[in-house]
Design a protein around this nucleic acid. Structure first.
Lengths: 347, 347
DNA sequence: CTGTTAGCGCCTTCAT
DNA sequence: ATGAAGGCGCTAACAG
């Protein structure tokens, strides 16, 4: 069949199905008030001709657009890529088009909130792992656009995330349980973000306090996210007069860098130094890194479902917190018998 | 200022600027035939009110949509995420909206080519690293949608890629130059794709032939992409009666798995066995993996620029091949002196 | 150079 | 349950 250079319009479908324009529209949109037989006929004709309603015209005329926006900071990183991939799957199954916006910097993010709502390009927006300030949120919601968060922090709109504090506590407690006391933390920060999530850091201070272990400020080092940065941070830690026996890193990717530094220094993991982090990146298994697993795909799926619910007119759960789980591999062990620390060396 | 629940329209801007509707339209679109002063005035008013033309209405009325589609197989993987991130940056700077489609399976891909053109949702589509068959291409081009490829193979539409054969040859020659003869290949394939890129495999056979080294079929193993798969493939290789002294892997991620298997077997890299691959994944540096670097961001940027050129009415280069480069780290070394077992076991 | 006038493809009352 | 008519916000001829 010769491909028609001119895509069919709703009018064509209506004619082919032998019904009126309005009826065809109602049928395609699943609107009520169409005889089942009529609807089936229209749907069949549409199917045959690979016809899909034009989202552009549809929304111009006041309908929904079946289009959502995903706003993400660093899509090339595993966490973000995975969560986006999961959401895409859900959205595509629901026949929603996805507009992707990358907001690495403050400026880009400002730009996004400036331009998107201005034209109602989408029915909903999903922000991945970054905060939206109250002004931005109001601006966008006033325009009737729904907002949902994935993989971030608590918020006033529906969001799905993990409990960072809890994950961090699990990691640190694992180290403490092994008998470590000189525990360092490599804090990962995003220099581009005006406000940093604090959960994973708080977890450290809280857990240490509960165990009555004073934290030395030298043992806490902040660094931008990334393996190279993790490597440097670890170098700083190792150059201390009295280095730590264990390290808690905010993220696996930071830990990977730290691991390299440790090994290049001629030290062994976990014999000389233990390391634990959060995420369970695919490379963690290959590196034998003990870490706290977080369900990434699941967060994306849940967030996408929230959008579907919202678009469906229902109210999704305000907060969804997915469970994390400690995965013990071989990067952690009791500290070298310092003096007489008879820790319960399970594992 | 109280955000207007009703976004301004072109008519509003025209009125505020004291000009006619058409003039405002022309001014905003950079169309010719507008007095500089008038244009400035319109632009100023638009700026003040954060007004942006509605792509939906614009395209409905026959204008461009300033919207492009990116079609990508596995966005959660480093290569794809990075290339998409690069393209996004370029597109956002050009004020183009990006529609993202994930096509993991054949079915999804079919779906894409079925529905997208049907409604002219975009001005152009970029396919990332997967082939488009002739029928699909024609279908889409007949509808006036431009098509461009990134990170894939040669094609009839503008494409940017690396020379896979050349990259592979570089890798294999490195091994041969070191003195290896029992060289294995771990071939990565995508079970979902009907047709596999052959460049990296051909490179192996060609280079071996040129060096007059017969390739034993046992030393070639195919596996789906992925670290775990690479690990298994390596296990197969190691269980051979006469294992290879060097391995050429199609991709770093596969090599990572292979590395683990080797080390878990108690063997040392590169003393006992050398390994080289292609990509230069960020973890390659951390793993001391010798690899052939390919410029990923650059491929994305070039492809995006091609789209801009096309949208601008010009013809971009039909083929852009970006250079690759061997990065020698510490996963490759001359083979152990065949008989004597005098390994300098550094590390 | 600038304003006026048709639609673009669709959804929505409003009738029938 | 269905058809007819108006208009969504904008661009592309046309006039002036």
């Amino acid at each position: 069949m010769p491909p028609d250079a001119h895509p069919l319009t709703l009018a064509d479908i209506a004619r082919l199905a032998g019904v009126g324009l309005a009826t065809a529209s109602r049928a395609l949109n699943g609107a009520p008030g169409v005889a089942p037989a009529t609807r089936a006929k229209v749907l069949a004709v549409a199917e045959e001709n690979a016809f899909v309603v034009s989202p552009d015209a549809s929304r111009l005329a006041g309908g929904a657009q079946r289009r959502v926006a995903i706003v993400v900071p660093h899509i090339s990183r595993w966490f973000f890529g995975t969560i986006v991939e999961a959401m895409l799957t859900v959205f595509q199954n629901a026949d929603l088009d996805v507009l992707l916006y990358h907001v690495g910097s403050e400026a880009e993010r400002h730009d996004f909130f400036e331009k998107l709502p201005a034209r109602r390009k989408v029915d909903a927006v999903v922000v991945v792992a970054f905060p939206v300030d109250e002004q931005e949120r109001q601006r966008i919601e006033l325009l009737g656009v729904q907002i949902v968060a994935a993989g971030g922090q608590h918020a006033v709109y529906p969001h799905v995330c993990i409990d960072d504090v809890n994950a961090g506590r699990t990691a640190v407690n694992h180290l403490i349980g092994l008998g470590h006391r000189r525990i360092a933390m490599i804090e990962a920060v995003d220099p581009e973000q005006p406000v940093q999530p604090r959960g994973r850091s708080m977890a450290f201070y809280d857990t240490m306090a509960e165990a009555d272990i004073p934290v030395e400020q030298d043992l806490v080092v902040s660094t931008p996210w990334g393996p190279e940065q993790g490597a440097e941070a670890m170098a700083t830690l190792l150059s201390l007069p009295n280095p730590p026996t264990a390290v808690y890193a905010h993220s696996d990717e930071v830990a990977f860098g730290a691991l390299r530094t440790i090994r290049r220094s001629g030290l062994f993991v976990p014999e000389d130094i233990s390391i634990v982090s959060i995420d369970d990146h695919p490379m963690a298994a290959l590196t034998d890194l003990t870490t706290v697993h977080q369900p990434v795909r699941e967060q994306g799926i849940a967030a996408a479902r929230n959008v579907l619910t919202l678009l469906n007119g229902d109210r999704p759960d305000q907060a969804t917190t997915l469970p994390t789980q400690l995965i013990v591999r071989h990067s952690t062990a009791p500290p070298r018998a310092a003096t007489a620390k008879t820790g319960p060396a399970r594992r």
